[in-house]
Every structure is written in structure tokens, then in C-alpha cells.
Design a protein around this nucleic acid. Sequence first.
DNA 1: GAAGTGATGTTTTTT
DNA 2: ACATCACTTC
Length: 776
Amino acid sequence: MYDNQCTKSMENKSLSQSYLNELNDIQRKAVVTIKGPVLVVAGPGSGKTRVLTYRIANIIESGVAPWEILSLTFTNKAAKEMKERIAKVVGDRAHKVWAGTFHSVFAKILRVEAQHIGYSPNFTIYDTDDSKSVLTKIISGMNLNKDKYKANIIKNRISSAKSNIISPVGYRQQKSLLEQDSIAGRPKTVDVYEKYMAKCKASDAMDFDDLLYQLFYLFYKFPEIAKKYQAKFKYILVDEFQDTNHLQYSIMRKLVNYGDSERNICVVGDDAQSIYGFRGATIDNILDFEKDFKPHGIQTFKLEQNYRSTEHIVQAANEVISYNSKQIQKKIWSHKGSGNKINILKVASDNEEGSRIVHQILEQKNRDHLSNSDIAILYRTNGQSRIFEEYLRRYNVPYRIFGGLSFYQRKEVKDALAYLRIAINPNDEEALLRSMNYPKRGIGDTTLTKIRSHATENSVTLRAALKTVDLPARVKAQVRRFEKLLTLHEELAQKQDAYESSHTIIKNSGIIELLKKDTTPEGQARIDNLGSLLDGIKDFVENDEFSELTENSDDRSLTNYLQNIALVSEQDKSDESSDVVTLMSVHAAKGLEFPSVFVVGLEENLFPSFMALESQNIDEERRLFYVAITRAEKLLTLSFANSRYQYGNLRHNSPSRFLEEIDANHYDNPSVIKKQYGGTGTLDKSDEPRRAALTGISKSKRSLPKVEVDMANFKPSPSDSLEEGMKVLHLKFGKGKILSIEGGKGNRIASIQFESLGDEKKRIMLKFAKLQILND
DNA sequence: GAAGTGATGTTTTTT
DNA sequence: ACATCACTTC
């Protein structure tokens, strides 16, 4: 991986010396400083994982029991990889370390403690689809306008409330939140939130956010339980710290920052690689961490040496990221020689982009002797993969696309899982409703309504109502039959192992019979998927597929199986053995590296995405671009197209601004990005009105005049000090005047007229804007 | 309850 | 372009 550092696996002896020798000075300090709070700022390719794993190994070597170490990561894959690497140093003990994702580790704790807060140990974990489905039902049950109250939006509101530790009660007390909802035409959001929480609890179910939120609540409500875990985890490590949200940080802090704690906490992250802001991650956590642990002697280590890429790439990355104002100062550097210049590829259309890049891939395989697996195509949106797929197939280049629907989200799989879930947790309404009339068994809406009201009137669960509700003879027979089936399944799940029981349950469900009627290839594929599901369960029973994450790895019950799959995704099991070209979104590529990387679709409105342009929040896009180019070890190709189909329309976008932020001397053909392309984000077809309304991007965007602002003296004023009429200075647009401000506190949007932009007024969200008030 | 129609909404994603 | 979905109609 890092080829100028020796990676030869070593014997299990005399480790202490050998692994420390593989580290540079700063890395070594970060590894041996095991007491007290430590912040490691780790640039891309700086050996972050190596530091984390050796650090854990070192802690174990110092005599700490592995189970007293808690190591939190973002993906199961990262956790697994880490354990394997620790095991190479300290042997099997490594597997006793509590290493996992925030969600899986917290779920594990909650299984033990949830009874204190009114959940059973077998609580179900609702995935995003389940949550949305619950919300949709609540919203329609409350007779709210479905168009205003979109499940997705409400879900995000609730999720962000939970991520900021705001309960429904707390939500009601926050004027700004209520105001935002009101302005958006969703004043009852908080009521939906409250009902949603109640419904989840009644269903003995937690959504992903609950796994964090409820744990926080548990620790808060029962200090003695918190104490237990504070005492248990003597050393805590957090990876990808820049991607944690406030709630995650709060729990982590709770575990380590108390009274006489040694505060053995190490967080590793890179503010420049924070790309999950859109789902609540906040760099403030890094600042808070520094503040919170300053009194306890925090030590900071910056890993700036890059072992991954050659110099043109590293320097280009530095240049790009320097356009972001808010960042921890650091410059990555490399000793790998200047290497190749960045290849820039200008093409006429998205189609040509596909063709040219595949040709380049063939060329690289020939000329540079690269294998398929050395090569990755990275794009901003998953939708861009199609054209590359077509050309790769045409030229017989094996490839694999990552991303998209996960196996467990496929309809037929979810349908089958519903039958399994309801057998384990009879309160799981989502699963019950999903399976009740699929396959069709004559329990339609009318009947369902009757069952519902029967349940409400008698204060029993839906499941119980099936037994007692009175219905017309024919339907009644159907309902009772279904009820008997569920009872049978419950018994099976108790008596048999996961495979035996699920095999029968899925067969009984009738789903396969139903799918067999669909003779299309898709129908066949669905049946195959159910087969794979069963294969997976068999695997679980026969092998130790999930033993890492499970409390009791001998437990082969259906219960245990379901609890595990809720938190794993397919990628976790991905085999890296096959020699294929990788296609994935830039987000998905974080943490990976390839000898040759193609970053495609570098156009305004695409990368940076129009969403980001609209909200004036392109710093995160820039970090994303930074992540993208730093994936490359030796060869980096950046491409942009003059025109491409987007949402069914042919669009002309100008080259991405990010391309100009890289100094020309790093490009092999710098003239390509200079000027031309009158393209201004216009459309060929004349449905401008809808588009313009959607994107908020008018025709004359682009070609912003360069404004000279004295960086040294620029001090942005606090956003709430800005008022109408003020003269302000903006880093990009220069001097301007605030014409008006609309929107509530925390969400204010100003219309500003900048001298540099003539008559065009800019709407800027003050929350993000960096504006300095001018006094003259 | 199936089949057809029209409107709608389309970044990024783990858990 | 395309998929999803609520809603209509038979």
C-alpha cells in the first residue's frame, strides 16, 4: 500500500520494535502517545489507518485488555479491515477489541440495556425505507397535505433534530425550528415527529438515528449505566472524525470526558475531507474537541507526508483546497517524485467522454501495464455510470459498479424479510403491514381499516387484533388463516435455526410462487435474489460470517441473524480479488486509492453540483473534488464535456471552476481549460422555465469577474450582525450592498447587489456567506 | 384489484 | 430519460 514503507507482514514476536520502525516520526508519536486526549489530523494518503491500527496494537502491548478498547469507524468494512490489520501485529486477541461502526457498537450496547428505556432486547432496526413508510402512514393518518409533508423531507427534519439531540419536546421549544417549518408550510412537523417516535416505540423498533439517540438518552437518564461503560472503555479511538455529527460526538464525549477519567481518547480525521455535511456531519466537532479537551492536555499531530501520490497530484490538491477559507492549516507533501502531469480531457459530449476514457483505459493497460483493478472512474452522481458501462462492455473491459440499491433494499428481499421480522417481533407493524396482503390474500384496505380501528378501540396491537377482530365470514377466514401462519412462524423461529426457519417461512409466504408467474428476466432475477438471501442465511448458520459483530457468535437463531443484517451492507462483503475496473461515486471512493483515476464530468452544475451552487455552499464540493483527485497514485485524468444529457435535456455546462483552481503547470495540456465554451449552462430545448425554477440558475451565470480582495485584512462579520442597507465585502464578489433580508433567524437569505455584477442581484444565505461589514 | 395515466422529482450515503 | 407514485377507470 505504502510502498516506501515496508509492509511485509511480520511474525508474532518482538513486535514492539518492528512496527514502530515502519513509521515516520510524527506517526510514531501518534502511536506511542496512548494516554490523554490526542487529535490526529491526517491528510489523504498519510498512513492514517496504519497509525490507528498500530496505536491499538501498541495499547494492547502495553498491557490493556483488548475489550477495554473501543474503536469507532464509519463502515463495517473499515472496522473489519482494522481488526485484520491489528491481528497481524498482536494475533487473535485483536478480535476482542470493540471495533465497529457507531451504529453496530451502540446497537450491541442497546440490546443489553434497552429494557431500561422501554424496548425489548430484540428490538427491530428500521432502515430508511421503513422509516419513510411509517412517516407516510402517519402523515396521511393526520390528513396532512402529502405534497407539503413529503416523507423524505420530514425524515430529514427528524433525523437532523435527533442528530442535534432535540426531542419532540425540545423541538417545540425552539422557535427557530418551528418558524422554519411554518415558512416551509409544514407547521405540524413537530407533531409528526412526536407520533413517529411513539409509533417506533410501540413497534419495538429503532431507526438508525435512534441507535445513537436512544443510547444518549439512556446514558443521560441512567448515569449508573453510563458509568458502567465509562469504566469499561478505557481507550477510545474514532476514525473519520470529520464525518461525525453532534450526537455522535456527544456520546463519545460522555464516554470519556468525566470526572477523574484519564481521557484516553484519540480522534483521527481530516477537515479537508469532510464530505458528509449534508447528512449532519460537522467540522465543529473538531473545534469542540480541541476546546473540550484543552484543559486535559490535548496533543495534536499532523500527518502531512503523503505516501500515495506523485507530486503534481499532491500539489494540485493543495492548490484546490486553499480556496476554502475555513480549514486547519496543513500542506501535504510527497517524496514520490513529480510523476506524470495531470491529463486533462476536453470532449464534446457525454457520449464522447465515455468513448475517450475507455480508449484511454485500454491505452494505459497497454502502455503502463496496468490491470483493470488499478483503474477507477469516479463521478459526482451515480447516474453518470451508464455511458461508461456501455463503452466498457463494448470493449470487453470487465468492470464493477459500486453504489445504487443495496441487496437488502430490493423489494423482493424486503418483502421476504418482512415475514422473517414479524416472526421475531410481533409488534413490528411495518413488517406486519407489508406482509399482510402480499402476496394478495384478500385483505384489502377496507379490512385493514377495520382491523386498525379494532386495535385502537381495544388498545391492542395490530398483531393481536388479527385474532379478535370481527369481519365478514370470508375475509375473516383469510385473516385468521394469516394469523395462524404468523403464529406458526413465531414458533418456528424459536425452535429452529435461522436457515431452517427462514426456509420454511419464505416458502409459506407464497412470494416465490407469485414471482414464478413473472417470466421476464427481471422476475427470474428476483427469484434468484431470494435464493441468494437464503444462501446468505445458510452461510450465517454454517460459518462465522458475522461473528465479529455479535455478542454470542454461537447464536444461530433467526433473531440473531436479523439483528446483524440490519447494520451490514453488501459492500462489507465485497471481494477485492477480481480484476475489474472500478466505477463509483466520489463519496464512495473515500479511503480508497488507485494507480490510475479518472474523475469525470467536471462541469459547472454537475461538479460542483447545481444544488451546491444554489445554496452558495461549494466548499463541501471542493472538498469532494479534493478527495477525488487524492485517490490517484500515479495517473490522474480529469474530463469535462461541452454538452451532456441531464434529466432528459441536452445541456451545455462550462468547465468546472475547480479545474481553474489547479495551477496550469500541473496539466499536460493546460490550454484546454482556458476560455472557449460559450457554454453557460443553457439548454437546447426550450423548457427553460421549469429548469430555471428548479435550479435557480439563470442563463447568465458564470464567468464571474475576478475581484481583488485584500485577503489579509478580510474578517467576515458574524452572520447575525448583518442587516439591510449595510455595505459589505465578499471574498469573490467584492463590495456590495444588502438590499433586503428574508427568512428567519439562522436561515436568513439576503439579496445583495455587488458592484462587480452590475444589475444582477445575488441571493446569499447568510449562514454560509462570508461577508465583512464595511463601515464607510 | 388490475391496469393505465399523468404528475413529479430527481447530489452525494452509512447505518 | 426515467422511475416512482398517487389516482383514475374499468
